[in-house]
Simulated assay, not measured.
Amino acid sequence: MHELSLCEGIVELLQERAAIDHFSQVKTVQLQIGQLSCVEPEAMRFAFGAVSKNSVAAGATLNIEPLPGIGWCHRCAAEVAIGQRYDPCPLCGTAPIEIRQGDEMRIKHVEVV
């Protein structure tokens, strides 16, 4: 379950920012998680609750915004929606296509006190 290590990294980052920016509590964390990232949102929520105990993020709400998979087909010269990492172009069937969005995970917003 790599979601646990991802959440540990998020909490570590929040702890570091709390020391730098002098806040004492995180109320909400807004994550963007790409559909192609192989990150399971429900596992992230569970792991975040477990690893955030005894930290500035204890009791914080984790909101997850999914990002759709978008690729670039060199043959069609078009952006196309993709559901999985190695999907062929839905327009012409060419594979592989270049991933433009959907394999990332980032903290979009943090609400603190």
Score class of each variant (00 low, 15 high):
F46P: 00
T94C: 08
G34Y: 00
G49K: 13
H109S: 01
V11T: 07
M105C: 13
T94R: 14
C38R: 10
A60W: 01
V26Q: 08
A77R: 15
Q101I: 11
E65N: 15
A50T: 06
V80A: 10
L6W: 00
A60P: 04
N54F: 10
K27T: 12
D21G: 05
L13Y: 03
L14R: 01
Q101L: 15
G59V: 06
C38M: 08
S52G: 01
A18S: 11
H109Y: 08
R17V: 07
Y86G: 02
S52Q: 02
I70A: 11
I20K: 09
P96D: 02
I64F: 12
A57R: 03
C38S: 08
T94M: 13
L13M: 07
E98K: 15
E111N: 02
G83Q: 13
N54T: 07
A43T: 10
S37D: 04
A81D: 01
R100C: 06
D21P: 01
E8I: 04
V29E: 02
C76Y: 14
E98I: 08
D103K: 13
Q25S: 10
L14A: 01
L62W: 09
D87N: 10
P68R: 14
E42C: 12
P90E: 02
I33C: 07
I97M: 09
G102Q: 04
E104D: 12
K108D: 07
P88N: 01
E40P: 04
P41N: 11
H2Y: 10
I10C: 05
H22M: 10
Q101D: 08
Q15N: 07
E16V: 02
A43M: 10
R100D: 00
A18M: 02
L4V: 13
H2P: 04
L36Y: 05
S24L: 09
V110W: 09
E12W: 00
G83E: 13
E3D: 11
V80D: 03
Q35W: 11
E65L: 15
E111H: 02
N63V: 12
R17P: 00
L67G: 09
E40V: 13
R45P: 03
P68N: 13
G83L: 07
N63Y: 14
P88K: 01
Q30D: 14
Q25R: 14
I70N: 08
I10M: 10
V29R: 05
A18R: 00
E65K: 15
A43R: 12
E104P: 07
Q101M: 14
F48W: 02
I97N: 08
P96W: 08
G34D: 04
L67Q: 13
A47G: 03
H22E: 15
C76T: 10
Q30N: 11
P68L: 11
R106M: 12
Q84E: 13
G9N: 12
Y86V: 04
H74R: 15
S55A: 06
V56L: 01
D103T: 10
